[in-house]
Write a protein that binds this DNA or RNA. Structure first.
Lengths: 223, 223
DNA sequence: GTCTATAGCAGGATAGAC
DNA sequence: GTCTATCCTGCTATAGAC
């Protein structure tokens, strides 16, 4: 057995966070054991308790030190894309959002991890939910709300806008979160072409829905 | 200790399925122990192994004997709603779908369970995924595809239609699946009024997106 | 800061009485 | 079909050597 491992420029604490995140994302909190994490991080079992106290706290610190910084990178990317368009219209906002999340600064592996983790918290909120709600979800939501509000005509009610933002997020999350299902039903792999296609689709659908700009007499049969 | 428990008209096997489903939905597969299930079902620990062989198999049978029948009830409700409208337009189809899933034949507690279970499988597919994909997801998808295809104008491409159906499902799933987040961001509780509002929103957004029938010059700033 | 060793417990699964 | 008792594995967490 090697006593002192070679991990140049790569502290044990950081390696644990990296591997823990990957495993939590992939399998979920309860399906991952400390032994599995420390084995993957090539360190001793007791290192998790030494650095993080316990498993639950490691999970929270994954969100604090891995998930949140990545969320910030996505949001910055979104803001940057908008900053390049001074008088932006609703479609510019939705496009910037879709691009930031589907093509933005993350690698595809990071993107999958990111969405798996947030999906887990949305489905079954734990301690970490309050953290990310307060520091990422609420600020982003309010920011988009302000942008869209400024860009939309005033006939749009507050509630209508809120629900529309949820719907846009539903699409963005779903197209990352349900990759397996979507591949299984559509046959598409998540390559660059398909992601371009998805961004275009999200923008078009968010603007026109099923009807399209050629808007026909959709309501004719309803009396 | 009581030797023979009183469970009139309610076989042990069925009680285990009921309680197991509730717990799996609420906490996820790995977070639930056999002991917890059998305690909740008021039977002996060994009953799970007696009736289902092992935990994994119990999980699959929950999908087989609880989830799938419920999915069928929802699909029947959808078909029934459509049958009442002979010459249905796209908005009728989307409304029937949203109603079937958000207001349909299930109680609200059943609806939450149903969506938590399917979300778990979409996020991290297990053995059960193939079962429900083959017996519920693919048939429903193809059925809607056919309905919409017949109701839409022919300018809509195959791929465009596929992505649009995903988007409609994304909304329906998200509005059930992300209840905690949506309540946290919008302040709305999931009462009857809000669910009515959601159905209307899903139909409107799916038809017109953000622009609405008053469709303005959304694309003006993009050159 | 990293390791070994182990405490202490909970998990899934089985054998066999009734 | 339901129960008790038990096996054995794997888990989290801690104590203490180096």
């Amino acid at each position: 057995m090697v006593k002192s491992k070679n991990h140049p420029n790569n502290r044990t604490r950081e390696r644990i966070l990296d591997k823990a995140e990957a495993l939590f994302a992939c399998k979920g909190y309860h399906a991952v054991s400390i032994r599995e994490i420390t084995k993957s991080a090539e360190c001793n079992v007791s290192a998790v308790n030494y650095y993080f106290g316990n498993k639950q706290n490691l999970y929270c610190e994954v969100f604090q030190h891995r998930w949140l910084p990545r969320a910030k990178r996505i949001h910055n990317c979104f803001r940057q894309l908008l900053a390049d368009k001074p008088n932006c219209k609703p479609n510019d906002i939705v496009r910037a959002l879709a691009q930031a999340f589907l093509q933005g600064p993350l690698t595809d592996a990071e993107r999958v991890r990111h969405h798996q983790l947030i999906s887990g918290e949305i489905a079954q909120p734990s301690q970490a939910f309050n953290l990310i709600a307060k520091q990422a979800l609420h600020p982003l939501f309010n920011s988009i709300r302000g942008d869209l509000n400024a860009a939309m005509s005033e006939i749009f009610g507050d509630d209508q806008l809120t629900l529309s933002i949820f719907s846009i997020f539903a699409m963005i999350l779903h197209f990352n979160f349900a990759r397996h299902l979507i591949t299984s039903l559509s046959g598409h792999q998540y390559d660059t072409d398909f992601k371009n296609r998805l961004v275009d689709h999200i923008v078009e659908f968010s603007m026109f829905g099923l009807i399209g700009k050629n808007g026909e007499d959709w309501n004719a049969s309803t009396t």
